[in-house]
Design a protein around this nucleic acid. Structure first.
Lengths: 257, 257
DNA sequence: CATGAACCCTCACGTGGCGTGAGAGGCAAG
DNA sequence: CTTGCCTCTCACGCCACGTGAGGGTTCATG
C-alpha cells in the first residue's frame, strides 16, 4: 500500500470529501494530474498533489470555473504564499457579503414579526449587488463583444485588493515617467518615449489582456477621443494625452512597420 | 409600462442580478411562474413573485437543487417567517464554516511565512468535514439504495435546529403515550395502541419519508431485531419495543388487510 | 404612420461539472 | 483459487442554465 509516500484515489477522496469521479475528472481535464502511476495504471497522489487539490477546492468553493482555476494555479509568476493571500482576500469578501445577506434576513424577520412587511424590492436588492460602477457599462458599450474585453473581464475578476494596489502603482509610475518625458521636451517619436509606450503596452498585457500593437494604437486614439480618458491624462499634465498617443503610434510603427 | 404594479423580465433580472434566461428557466420548470401575462404573452412579475424569487435565490446560494427548492417553498405547512428562520439558520451555519476555512488559510499563511509547512493532510481536512456520525453509515448499510432512504436524506438535509427540536418533541410525546398504554395494560391490538401506532407512522411521513403500512411493519420488526433501536425503547420501559411492534402490525392489518 | 431601437417571445441546441453504471482487471486475505 | 474490495477506462446522462435564431411588441422619433 506504500502508506505515507503517496495516496490512492479512494484515500484522497475520503480525505478531501470529494468523489473519486471528481478526481478522475480533474485528471482528465489536466487540472490535477497525479504525480505518479503504479505499473497497473493506478493513480498515486503525492503531497504536492494534495496541496494543489486544496487550492483547487478553495477556488472552486469561491465559484471559479475549473478552466480558470488551472490558469490561476499555473501562473508561474505567483508563488504559494501569494496564492494563499489571494484566497484569504476572496474568502473575506465572500464572508462579508454573506454577513450582509444574513443581516438582511434578520431585518426581514424583525419587520415581519412586527407586522410590517418590507417591500419585495428591498429584499431583492441584497442579491443584486455587484456595483460595476457604471464605468463598466461604458466600457462594455465601446469594447463589448471583443475577445480582449472578455479576457480582461475574466482576469480582473480574480484580482485581490493587493493586486490592485500593485497594478495601480505600476500604472502611475509609467504615467509619471511619460509626464516627465513630455514636460522635459523629449520628442514623442524618440526612443525614450517609445520605450515608455512599450512599457505601457506590456503593463496591459500583464494585467488585462493580450494587447497587440494594433490594439495599442486604437487605445492611443481612444485617449484623445474619449473625454474621460483624456481628462485622466490631461489632469496631470495638459497636453499629455496627445503626447501619449503619438508615442504609442511611434512605438507601434517601430515594431510592426 | 404599468410601473409599480408589476415588472417585466428585464426589470426583475436587473433587480435580482440574474439573467433573463434564468427567469425563463424557472418558469419552464414551474419553480417561479409569473402571476400574470400581458395580452402579447409578456411575463409580468407581481410582488409575491419577487418574494418567492428572493427565497429561491437564497436557497440556491445555499446549494439546494432547484427541484428541492420547489418542494421546500411549496410546503403549505410552513409560513414565511418559519421559512426565513430556516434560511437564517442555514446561512449562519455556512458563515461559520466559511470562518473555519478562513482561519485555516490564515494558519497556513502564518506557518508558511515562518518557514514551517503544514502537512498537506492537515490542510485538506478542512474540506473533508461532514462528520456524518458513523450512525449514518450503519443506516446506509441497512437501508441504502431504497427510495425511502433517499427521500429521507434529502429532506433531513434542509432541517434547521428548530425543526429538530419540534421533531424530537413530537417523537417523545408519541413514545411517552405508547409507554403509558403499555404500562397501563392496554392490549397492543387495541384501538388506543393502534391509533398511537398510526400517529407514529404519520410522524415519519411528515418528517422523513412516505411511510407505507408495509414499510411501517418492517420498521416494527427492526425495533425488536436491531439492538440499537430495541435499547432506545426498552431503556424507557422494558418490553416496550415488542409492544410497539405488535401495535404497528395490528394497525397495519387494520388498514391494509 | 412608418421606422428604428429596445424589449419581449418561443424553440432548440450547446456546455460545464460532474453522476452513474458497465465491463474488465488488480491485489490481499482466507 | 476464489472472494471482496479496490482500481481502471469508456461512455452516456443530468442539471442549470448560455447562446443564438427567427420573429413579434412597444414606444419614442422623424
Amino acid at each position: 500500500m506504500l502508506e505515507g509516500m503517496s495516496l490512492s484515489v479512494g484515500q484522497v477522496s475520503r480525505l478531501a470529501g470529494v468523489t473519486v469521479r471528481t478526481l478522475h475528472h480533474y485528471d482528465e481535464i489536466g487540472l490535477l494530474c497525479p504525480g505518479e502511476r503504479t505499473a497497473a495504471g493506478y493513480r498515486r497522489y503525492t503531497d504536492d498533489d494534495l496541496v494543489r487539490l486544496q487550492q483547487v477546492l478553495l477556488y472552486r468553493e469561491l465559484g471559479f470555473p475549473l478552466e480558470e482555476i488551472a490558469v490561476i494555479l499555473d501562473d508561474p509568476q505567483v508563488d504559494e504564499v501569494t496564492q494563499l493571500r489571494r484566497q484569504h482576500e476572496l474568502l473575506s469578501r465572500k464572508s462579508e457579503r454573506l454577513r450582509e445577506v444574513i443581516a438582511a434576513v434578520e431585518r426581514a424577520i424583525e419587520a415581519r414579526s412586527l407586522g410590517i412587511a418590507l417591500t419585495p424590492r428591498e429584499r431583492l436588492e441584497v442579491f443584486g449587488r455587484f456595483r460595476p460602477e457604471d464605468h463598466e457599462a461604458e466600457v462594455e458599450r465601446r469594447w463589448g463583444g471583443t475577445d480582449a474585453y472578455a479576457e480582461s473581464r475574466r482576469r480582473v475578476a480574480s484580482y485581490t485588493k493587493g493586486d490592485w494596489v500593485e497594478l495601480k502603482a505600476e500604472a502611475e509610475a509609467i504615467g509619471a515617467e511619460l509626464a516627465a518625458a513630455f514636460t522635459g521636451g523629449l520628442p514623442a517619436g524618440g526612443v525614450r518615449a517609445m520605450d515608455l509606450a512599450e512599457r505601457h503596452r506590456l503593463h496591459i498585457c500583464r494585467w488585462f489582456y493580450t494587447c497587440t500593437y494594433d490594439i495599442h494604437r486604437c487605445l492611443g486614439e481612444l485617449y484623445v477621443s474619449d473625454p474621460r480618458f483624456t481628462a485622466a491624462y490631461d489632469e496631470v499634465t495638459p497636453g499629455l494625452a496627445g503626447y501619449v498617443r503619438e508615442a504609442i503610434a511611434a512605438n507601434a510603427d517601430r515594431h510592426s512597420p
